[in-house]
């Protein structure tokens, strides 16, 4: 287990386990996310990042273990826990037949915020995320980047303590990616906690102050980015060292060298 000197924890995960058939997707992990941190959860494909985030956000029942969000147990008191988080899930399931503005309006009201407050915040978020022009368009007609941004807006609308983002920059153009990272930086500067999963090490190194490396359903390393990086030049090198990247065998793929015409 990794312990920090900080007094407050945004997320406290203990013994979290999920098994699909005979494969452990998440094999009993312990993880502490300090409040106010920009936390990166990294790992190769199939490491268990999405499964961990799904269990932490109440989308998937763990086989064992607990997840506490600011002290509220996600599975014992889901209403309290879900009030404290905003989520950008993988595989976005949106109301395709609502406009962007309507989606924010209903999300905020369903979260129990006063209507006038929802509308003010929604207008502001749409402007900051560069979606004001598309506010009246149906979500079905949005591009991938726009869908990520509108979901991020919906996740931030109730000003949650913690944002959990699954691959927020995947399939997003550089302009939208810059907008998203700026918004996230402003959010953490204001005291919010961000947890994002990614397999793009450069992005994590650039944005995050704390990082956990997952491999094979376990936490391989966790701590401040500098500590995890250690003597390596880049986080990616440390990551490949931790995950154990296979070295290419000279004999393999020999046929690639000979042209067939």
């Amino acid at each position: 287990m990794i312990s920090y000197v900080t007094s407050e924890l945004a997320i406290e995960i203990r013994g979290l386990t999920k098994r699909f058939g005979s494969t452990y997707a998440v094999a009993g992990i312990d993880l502490d996310v300090p409040a106010g941190s920009f936390f990166g959860l990294v790992g190769p494909n199939g490491a268990g990042k999405t499964t961990t985030l799904s269990m932490a956000t109440g989308l998937l029942v763990p086989d064992a273990g607990t997840v506490r969000i600011g002290g509220a147990d996600m599975w014992a008191d889901p209403v309290a826990a879900k009030r404290r988080i905003g989520v950008l899930p993988e595989g976005l399931r949106l109301f395709e037949r609502l406009t962007g503005a309507e989606m924010l309006s209903y999300t905020g009201r369903l979260r129990g915020l006063p209507g006038a407050e929802v509308d003010t915040r929604a207008t502001e978020l749409l402007k900051v995320l560069d979606l004001a022009g598309a506010a009246g368009k149906l979500v079905a007609d949005y591009s991938t980047g726009m869908r990520k941004k509108i979901t991020l807006a919906a996740a931030m609308l109730h000003s949650p303590r913690v944002l959990l983002l699954d691959e927020p920059m995947e399939a997003v153009d550089p302009v939208s990616a810059r907008v998203i990272s700026d918004v996230l930086r402003r959010y953490t500067a204001g005291g919010g906690t961000v947890v994002l999963s990614s397999h793009v090490m450069a992005l994590v190194e650039q944005l995050c102050d704390t990082v956990a490396v997952m491999a094979g359903g376990r936490i391989a390393a966790a701590g401040a980015v500098a500590d995890v990086r250690g003597e390596h030049a880049h986080l990616e090198d440390a990551f490949l060292h931790l995950v154990g990247a296979p070295a290419a065998d000279e004999g393999e793929l020999a046929w690639l060298r000979s042209s067939s015409d």
């Binding site: 109440g58 989308l59 879900k82 009030r83 369903l110």
Partner: peptide, 10 residues
């Protein structure tokens, strides 16, 4: 589909 509301504190 109730799962579209799964992330909301309802």
């Amino acid at each position: 589909d109730p799962r579209r509301f799964a992330l909301l504190p309802l």
